[in-house]
Design a binder for these strands. Structure first.
Lengths: 191, 191
DNA sequence: TAGTTTCGCTACGGAAGCGTAGCGTAGTCT
DNA sequence: AGACTACGCTACGCTTCCGTAGCGAAACTA
């Protein structure tokens, strides 16, 4: 359809998305102005407006550019699968800018429909893998039949987010493991 | 020390804090400008600067003005105490502007030390009550000796926050009850 | 190599918000 | 009543950011 794109466009586009993500993490959404992005990236302001209509459009694109669906680990056991997924979540909550971006997105989604839609899309794709893993666990009999996967999901991911965002404590692999064990125990699974 | 304060100051101060909170909920921190607060409150911009140095000072004051420590319910049982506290949390996450303000505060705390300190203070005062309740439960033998109250806290409040902020589902009393029951079960308490 | 497209750069006009000064009015205290 | 204080209002200069126009240089395509 689109044939090939001028490499200059691809280059400036990639540069701008990277710079935008960096500024979002450093300064937040509101302070990530077109002016600042132009200055920090070395790309001219006019070039930005040639590819995006407005600041929200660029920021939304930047957020969208880091969405990634975690792969299904399929280790053979529910405990193994959940440990893989929650370890990944713990890592992205602890290191790198992803956590800060997530909180900024949640806040923006409270008031802006476009950010809300993006947030919804991000959460859905990320959750679909976990839900699939939980369903498989139910099918295997590792969780009671009739268990609500969405409920289990909130029980698993919630403590990690809360600990990071509100309690302000460390979220590492050891913590992820203790959460997985507690939740499985709560549903009467074999510890 | 301060003796008495001119009622005109108290009045304009109260008006401004209320208006600021409303705008924070409606527009977020960045868009809650001094100019907007003046316009919406009917209080002159100059009057605002007579009481606060800057926008962050006023916004921090506004956030601080709604901090409230929940009272210890002390119903006699751990289950009863936790239900009281989590029902309150569920309510404030579902209705009113408090939830949006909370997410804005979390986001701001990621980058601004002053907001981080306020966030820390808010979380600590709110958590101290829950931790006390959990400790009492341990003393009564309703939770195993050696249980880490902070861990239980994240297991309880985390799912509610996650469900509200990320899953986007309803957080009501029924949900709070299911979380309390699951967590107590996870720690081997009598259901 | 010749034509096309993107780029960087400069220069705008306009909007919004900041923070302050000066002044007359209205409310408060004694 | 009289002194005092906070208030509202207007006006201002300053800064930041917006979004666009025009142009020559550079990079890409065929």
């Amino acid at each position: 359809m689109t044939g090939r794109t001028d490499p200059r466009v691809l280059r400036s586009r990639a540069t701008l998305l990277n710079t935008t993500l960096r500024l979002l993490a450093e300064r937040g959404i509101a302070a990530t102005t077109i002016e600042a992005i132009a200055e920090q990236s070395g790309v001219a302001k006019t070039t930005i407006y040639r590819q995006w209509d407005s600041q929200p459009a660029l920021v939304l694109d930047a957020f969208g550019s880091i969405l990634q669906t975690p792969s299904d680990p399929d280790t053979g056991s529910l405990h193994g699968d959940l440990m893989e997924l929650l370890t990944g979540l713990a890592r992205s909550l602890s290191t790198g800018p992803a956590a800060g971006l997530m909180f900024a997105l949640i806040d923006a989604a409270e008031r802006d429909p476009a950010f809300a839609a993006l947030h919804r899309r991000e959460a859905d794709t990320r959750h679909s893998v976990i839900v699939a893993v939980i369903r498989r666990g139910i099918a295997r009999g590792e969780l009671p039949a009739g268990t609500d996967p969405a409920e289990v999901l909130d029980m698993l991911a919630g403590p990690l987010f809360h600990r990071r965002a509100i309690s302000g404590a460390v979220v590492d692999v050891a913590y992820a493991e203790s959460v997985v064990n507690r939740v499985l125990a709560a549903y009467g699974a074999a510890g």
